[in-house]
Design a protein around this nucleic acid. Structure first.
Lengths: 240, 240
DNA sequence: TGCGTTCCCGTACCACGTACGAGAATAGTA
DNA sequence: TACTATTCTCGTACGTGGTACGGGAACGCA
């Protein structure tokens, strides 16, 4: 079951998860691999959305029985964490650092945004579960911390900034994706527009009416993201 | 099924949902009410988490049969939207505006944070679904737009700022809640600490090792939120 | 060859959202 | 007062989901 809030606090010991004790020599040889299973799950999520990622469908995609998956991940929640870490691997190798930490931070955010657009389920997957620091995620975090080295921030603040930028990016990309899906359905968009028009006309929401009556700026999502990111990053270096 | 990404774009016409055509005079009288059902769902989510909100449990809580709920909400997704709008009603009446839009915006964010702490499922509920503008949400949005009136922003930018502040608050509160749940389990926290220590000691993550070795600042979540909020809001007024 | 170990996966259970449709309650009409 | 149309209630049932259980198959080693 997909956790919808922050409670529950994840259940698997990270050492058991990420630091596998290599192959023992005895017993039947594994017919599949954690990587292949995770890749199949990612492909499914990319193609049909996160709801398509069920244990049955992932299993059939890799040619395994359903319960075989449980030899590679103790539960579905863990499989989702593996998915997140696997796609984070696409962030390597990152752009080399320039020494300008603001510019480097922006480059990091842009790379994350591109990743999230490639895997539209990623923003929600990040929001819904606690950070799970697999090897790829750790590598990228390490890179981000290196980028922040010239900034006058202590360790905790650096981690905070990284989390903030990631969350900011996830939110904007989620909006962007939702907006795209929404606009793709003319009837839904029309219904929404009709509703907003009736609200604006009811006399109880003058500010909203005015905000909606402003001419829609033809800004691309890219421009909006870049502009807000600049604001946010430039606002970060005001001394504590 | 809980939507986990932004796709799917919600399915109910907002006019049908929010602008009910009052009571028709004919037919059997309703035994329950949308408000009571929503309140029961909210109470359940507050007490046991969002996963406890199932149609069966909500129904038994209000003393109804399961299928009776479908006379008041066409599906579970809609019930979740009703929940969000109902708790947004707790934001009224808001603090009066001072005319200092930055201060007013901060007050708005603090009110939202308090609401989210009271209803820990709210951040994820907001993140996972598209904005659903029920009457209470609209009233609060109207208030926020009024607060932004003195700012030199066009209509679209005001809406953007509101969305940004809400998302920022949701993210920090989600972290805060997750952290609290995590710390509440000594064994989980210990396992994580052990894992991080081993990562820091592996020699491949010097920046992370340094960041973690910094003495933990004894900052309260309140202070952290206030500090980051100040940075963010003060960074907003740099001209576009 | 046998044994211990590891992995594969068919079957089964329970919980979920919700479609269907029969029955009960109500208001308007004759 | 009957009749009827309308509106709501809710028991049953279906399909799908995660996953516990446990028997059997494949492998390394003695």
């Amino acid at each position: 079951m997909v956790r919808d809030d922050g409670s529950g606090a994840g259940g698997v010991d990270p050492q058991k998860l990420w630091q596998s004790p290599q192959q023992p020599r005895k017993g039947r040889k594994p017919a599949f691999s954690r990587e292949a299973i995770t890749a199949a799950a990612v492909a499914l999520a990319d193609a049909e959305g996160i709801d398509a990622v069920t244990m049955r469908r992932v299993a059939s995609q890799v040619g395994a029985g359903v319960m075989s998956l449980y030899s590679y991940a103790p539960d579905k929640e863990t499989l989702l964490r593996l998915m997140v870490d696997q796609v984070n691997g696409e962030l390597s190798p990152p752009d080399p650092l320039t020494g300008d930490w603001r510019a480097d931070l922006k480059a990091i955010a842009h790379a994350q945004r591109a990743l999230m657009l490639r895997h539209p389920w990623l923003p929600a997957a990040l929001f819904n579960r606690r950070w799970s620091l697999g090897p790829n995620t750790l590598a990228f975090l390490e890179h981000a911390l290196a980028a922040l080295r010239p900034a006058a921030l202590d360790g905790g603040a650096k981690l905070e900034v990284f989390s903030l930028i990631t969350g900011f990016t996830a939110r904007l990309v989620a909006d962007e994706i939702a907006q795209a899906a929404f606009s793709a359905s003319p009837e839904l968009a029309a219904a929404e527009a009709r509703y907003l028009a009736s609200v604006a006309a009811d006399g109880h929401h003058p500010e909203l009416a005015e905000a909606l009556s402003a001419p829609a700026r033809p800004l691309t999502p890219d421009a909006t993201f870049a502009r807000l990111l600049d604001r946010m990053v430039d606002g970060l270096d005001a001394g504590s």
